[in-house]
Simulated assay, not measured.
Amino acid sequence: MLSRKNNSGFGWDEHRQLVVAEDAVWNSYISSHKEAAQFRHRSFPYYDQLTAIYAKDRATGKDAQTAADIIEEINVEDVAATNSHEERNDFHGSEADVSLDDMDLSATQPQPESQLARNQGDSAFSKKKKKISDVSDFSTSFNDAAALLAENIRTVGLEISKSITSEVVIQQKSEMTIQESALKLYSTLCEVEGLTEDERYRALSKIPDHPTQMLIF
């Protein structure tokens, strides 16, 4: 959608990382694709990273196909193969009365009908198997990327948790040190010569307001 000009009225908000469109465009699209309603206000913060991972595997242009397109094409090929087989049976039935003397067998030796049907069936099966394999490979790659992303998020979360815990421990130790110093402040003031009782209480009410100076004192 980002690389093509005809986006049916949809666009991409780089700042908010989400798909945008006029209300009329959204309402029209959701009316026929109800499952799309959940993405109207949902952002895709990892779009750029996933694009970088899958850029070489992404189909573009007129030949791009989704998984639904591939399954539909497989079903069409199955119907075409069946019709072709039936037409070939009708053709051989209509030609059954032709004499072998009237046919020129010198140019080529035709394969038996069973062999032709088997070859065509094998070809259709191979194509079907390859397409299903491509869909499976894409699904596996996407799941691997999602698992890797989840693991990275978990690792970052653990590191943040450790950092927060460490800061909390340091803060708690600092508060305990200040409290212990405050408890010792009066006895320390009593050791200072020349201070009256009033002066001690005045100092006791002022010094705790400045924890760093109290620790130095």
Rank of each mutant, 00 (worst) to 15 (best):
K184I: 05
S123W: 15
S126V: 09
T196Q: 06
D23F: 01
A81R: 10
L189F: 07
T155H: 10
E35N: 14
V169H: 13
R42L: 12
N143C: 10
K130P: 01
Q172H: 04
D78T: 09
S141V: 03
T60I: 07
G121P: 05
L116S: 09
N89M: 05
T196G: 11
E77A: 09
S187G: 12
S139Q: 13
P211F: 00
A117T: 10
E72V: 00
T66F: 01
K173V: 03
Q213P: 03
A24S: 15
E77F: 03
R58T: 10
Q120M: 02
R42D: 09
D23G: 02
P211Q: 03
E22T: 13
I70Q: 01
D144G: 07
D104Y: 07
S161T: 12
P211L: 01
M214C: 00
W26A: 06
H92W: 11
S163A: 15
E191V: 07
D13V: 10
E197W: 11
E113C: 02
Y54F: 15
D209K: 15
V20N: 01
L50Y: 05
S94P: 00
G194T: 04
D144H: 07
C190N: 15
F44C: 05
Y46N: 06
L105H: 13
T82S: 07
G61R: 05
N119F: 14
R200C: 00
D63M: 09
E199Q: 15
E95N: 06
S126Q: 13
D90Q: 14
L50C: 04
S136G: 11
D78G: 11
Q179K: 14
G9V: 09
E87V: 10
S28N: 08
T60K: 04
R16G: 11
T188W: 04
I207G: 00
S181T: 05
D134F: 07
Q213R: 15
S3N: 10
S166V: 07
Y29P: 00
E151W: 03
E86R: 09
Y186S: 09
Q38L: 05
L148H: 08
R154N: 14
V76R: 15
I70S: 02
I164L: 04
W12K: 04
E87A: 14
A55N: 12
D144R: 07
G93A: 08
I53D: 04
E151G: 06
S106V: 15
I132V: 15
S31D: 12
G93Q: 08
M214Y: 01
Y29L: 02
R118I: 06
S99L: 06
P211T: 01
E197F: 13
I153V: 13
D104S: 09
Q171S: 14
L189E: 05
E72G: 04
N83P: 09
D57T: 05
T155F: 09
S84P: 02
A147Y: 05
S174C: 11
W12V: 07
R4L: 02
L189K: 04
T212N: 15
A150K: 04
R4P: 00
S94F: 04
E180A: 08
K62D: 08
T196K: 02
N6S: 11
A80F: 03
E87R: 11
Q111Y: 08
R88K: 09
A124D: 07
L149C: 03
L149W: 02
C190K: 14
L215V: 04
L18M: 13
L2V: 12
F91Q: 06
A24C: 12
P208F: 00
V20K: 00
V169M: 13
T66D: 02
I153N: 12
G61N: 07
S187R: 13
